[in-house]
Design a protein around this nucleic acid. Structure first.
Lengths: 159, 159
DNA sequence: CATATTAGTTATATAGCATAACTAAATTGA
DNA sequence: TCAATTTAGTTATGCTATATAACTAATATG
């Protein structure tokens, strides 16, 4: 199961990738892994004109209608200013609509258009293919464990 | 396998974090987790004047002496241009020395100074504390599994 | 109603990653 | 041998992602 290929690495042997010490660190492994995943995901999203953030934003908008911008920020843990350009672009492309909240004229209610819903559907399919490729060496149980471990670390560090 | 575990999501129940669909995606969870980890790690490294990349670079230099810059780039999977400023700063701070390779006058051999070795040692201790905090909810086996899973995903996506 | 808070925005800064193009030195191969 | 190619390091530059301060307009509070 967990049989790790312990590399001993006492002396003499100079491996081609002497990142030995760093390999013990979760942060280092996660950075490497996330980087590979991010790069592949960006390639996957490129045909849809989406990036990581905009993909996430579009998904949230499509899953729960009539959110306010601050809600989206909170849900995705992104700063409000960083959301504005994404929504501006979405609006320009007619993927979403901004409607003034009748009950609070400061706020906008964000809703997906049919075009937005269609784009998200298509992109999500592509992303799921990408994910299956990324996790091809893991079985269902391992995938569940991995997801769970990531949540545990994230929540542990949550301020 | 067509039975999608769709949580129906008709009406009424409005979860506080409706990132439902996204939660199924490894990329989304990993991004959130990595983000939390990265933020905490940056805080950890700040007293040492280090960032994620410079910390990694310093570690590699301290673990295997007399590397060329291109070796460091390859080991850490970073682009050569992005290494230059890091090494310039390290040199300025007298953490490393650049010596022309006698066998190839184009190349520099990078070695840590005593000051560099000391800084890396101190920073590594702090990082290990940070890591223990991050993984406090995981036992040894789970940590090993998590590391392994990350490697599997990274290697699967390696071009 | 005066004050404080909130929603969205603008401007700006930093970290990380990536590519093209340059120079000097080494390699190649005709 | 020497022209052409490749390689090591560098410079310049751009983009994505994240973060903060400060502004405006509207709302909430005391």
């Amino acid at each position: 199961m967990s049989a790790k290929p312990k590399p001993i690495e006492t002396a003499g042997e100079e491996g081609q990738k002497p990142d030995t010490g760093l390999r013990d660190l979760l942060g280092y492994r996660m950075k490497r892994c996330f980087n590979a995943l991010r790069s592949d995901l960006l390639d996957t999203l490129e045909p849809f004109g989406l990036k990581m953030i905009s993909f996430s934003v579009l998904n949230v908008i499509c899953d729960s209608r009539a959110l306010r911008q601050a809600d989206i920020s909170t849900i995705l843990s992104i700063e409000r200013p960083n959301l504005v350009a994404v929504l501006d672009e979405f609006e320009r492309l007619e993927l979403i609509s901004r409607k003034v909240d009748p009950g609070d004229k400061r706020a906008f209610l964000i809703s997906p258009t049919l075009k937005g819903l269609a784009l998200r559907k298509a992109a999500l399919i592509a992303v799921k293919v990408h994910e299956q490729r990324a996790m091809a060496d893991l079985d269902e149980t391992q995938i569940g464990d991995l997801m769970n471990f990531l949540d545990l670390v994230e929540n542990r560090l949550a301020k």
